[in-house]
Design a protein around this nucleic acid. Structure first.
Lengths: 348, 348
DNA sequence: CAACGTTCTGTAAGCGCTTACAAGGAGGTG
DNA sequence: CACCTCCTTGTAAGCGCTTACAGAACGTTG
């Protein structure tokens, strides 16, 4: 019947399968989706035809018909370090549980995702999660008006939902530990609060404690989050005659590189300066002294993001609590504490 | 004209835009795609309407019409370590250059991607890249018959194209270095050759050198690729009374964990045993002794994969050479060589 | 045996976009 | 002024799938 003559010698469609099986396309669709009742006999015929023709459905056609892409978008910056990978893994896993595929966009090196790519991404998914600071607010709001949109670890933007791991409190705890437990008096923060919302929050925690204690808050040593930035920070400190006895770094990469550079100049950690990081990367527990840092439940966060997004897409918006996940301070030797046992314990 | 009454109060479509702008949908499509000539006047009208209505295209409809998903699929195992992240970044970047989106599927912890998910992925993209060993051969071949399919760092499978970084030769070089430069005589390989094709190739390189020298090839210490596996390997060696003076590990995680465990038992590296890894993770240059390892051009590999896939999709199949990328041995202290300078050099 | 209830299956109307083709308009030329 | 060309625009036919609705087939039951 259906004169759907393939103009290209392209793959089988639901029509060719229907023809081959001697049934209607509706029936074929039913056996594929497992919806509706189909007699065992015809089901077998259809399955046979599918097998024989090597039929492979075209997702776009289904998406169009059901008006759902059955996909979630995720926008991340460069995938350096374990943080984004973990987030992505949690996200992907949760998405897969709901039979959703995930389409990923990475912002070009350090910059933001251009509006065009972002719009194109939005066109292919049912909902999007964006890492804080990777897409500008304008584009964010525009899309948020059309589809569920979640910002991860971002700044609080009116009209846009946010999900994050705790920063300020842990940072304050870390700072207080340096001052109280180790008697440090001249702490500095390494990292640019303007580079990302979570760095800002970490700086806020740091600043809060200093203000509480009546200590003047030194300007943060601004820079990126990569190893080279840590080296630079160390060199600035060295050049200034080491005006600090404690360094709170925005992440582990910086802390590690800074520590090494300092050691190279004869400045001991933790003897001369205490150092802390953030993220608990693998190297943090292999170096000596071990790096005191903060561990975030990144993977859980990723999963939570995907689930929340899915809820928003399906409209099944459950309780919206728990939007900020707790983190944990991990004490090792770099702050001055006695080194704990070997890093043999299982990772993650 | 078009009585496309929205039954749901859903978003604007190309029809509503056309109505609002007082033109036909064909014209709207033209200005959006930038195809065909459109007078400046109407183009502005259309753009206005789009803006006013907050119009956002539905990618599925376009995909259906142009019979292209404009997306590439990528299947990876767990995203641990820098290897997969780098690969993914290279892939994504190259895909983005061709305006292709990337949809990602991760195999569940250590296992293979189930056929169902794989088929669903295949339905949503124009071509797929799969990491070696993550999808079983049957499924692989079935899909390969329908869409461009590339295996990355996998075994050579008849009928399936393959792209990889060099393994065997570098592994042989590393092994020879241990024997010749450092006079080691009882090397062992840590890693399960059956776990992944590239581990197998690394083992082959190792074995080749031993056979060449007339040294009996000891059974590899089989295990996974995570830190815990390195610890276990170390404990097996310890239990056996250290039957080795050189350990070639399948990757850095293993090497690092093993080294630490050995040190904990009083076995020195490289004094008592030389150790090498693979991948050159960040920690490799921070530990003391630095880890001698092999660096792969993973990011380039990812980019090459995406480009190749795109060529295959568009039919523009250029020269198919260079399917195996060269790697580089990175000498540090763990093999017994004098430690090179500080790891201050720029990462990656 | 007729009436009725279940299953199973087919018909057809979309889903929102692209694009071949045709038609309408605006100049230009002899 | 008739005719031709080029530029813009509209018409309409799909792309491959889902699904509401209706009809067919097949017992069951009174």
């Amino acid at each position: 019947m259906a004169t759907h003559a393939a103009r290209t010698p392209a793959g089988a469609t639901i029509y060719s399968v229907a023809d081959a099986a001697g049934v209607s396309i509706a029936t074929v669709s039913r056996v594929i989706q497992g919806t509706g009742a189909v007699s065992e006999r015809t089901r077998t015929k259809v399955l046979d035809a599918i097998e024989r023709l090597d039929y492979m459905p075209t997702a776009a056609a289904r998406s169009l018909a059901v008006r759902q892409h059955e996909a979630l978008g995720l926008v991340l910056p460069e995938l350096s370090g374990p943080y984004f990978s973990e987030l992505l893994m949690g996200f992907e896993e949760a998405a897969a549980e709901h039979r959703l595929s995930v389409v990923l966009s990475l912002a070009e090196h350090g910059g933001t995702l251009d509006a065009d790519r972002f719009a194109r991404l939005a066109a292919t998914v049912d909902g999007i999660a964006v890492l804080g600071g990777v897409v500008d607010d304008g584009a964010l709001r525009r899309i948020a008006r059309q589809k569920p949109l979640l910002v991860v670890a971002g700044a609080e933007t009116p009209g846009v939902d946010r999900l994050a791991a705790e920063n300020t409190t842990s940072s304050a705890a870390l700072t207080a530990h340096l001052l109280d437990a180790h008697g440090r008096t001249r702490p500095v923060f390494v990292g640019d609060p303007d580079i990302a919302p979570d760095v800002r929050q970490r700086f806020e925690g740091f600043r809060g404690v200093l203000q509480e204690r009546g200590i003047a808050v030194p300007d943060p040593l601004r820079g990126g989050l990569r190893e080279a930035d840590g080296v630079r920070a160390a060199e600035r400190l060295l050049a200034d005659g080491m005006p600090a006895d404690a360094v709170v770094c925005a992440n582990d990469e910086i802390a590690l590189a800074l520590t090494t550079r300092l050691a190279g100049a004869g400045v001991g950690v933790p003897a001369d300066v205490a150092v802390t990081g953030w993220d608990d990367v693998m190297a943090a527990r292999y170096v000596r002294p071990g790096l005191t840092t903060v561990r975030q439940p990144v993977r859980e966060l990723g999963g939570l993001v995907a689930r929340r997004l899915h809820e928003r897409v399906t409209g099944a918006t459950g309780p919206q609590d728990e939007s900020v996940l707790a983190t944990r301070v991990v004490i090792r030797g770099s702050c001055g504490c006695p080194e704990p046992g070997h890093p043999d314990q299982r990772a993650t």
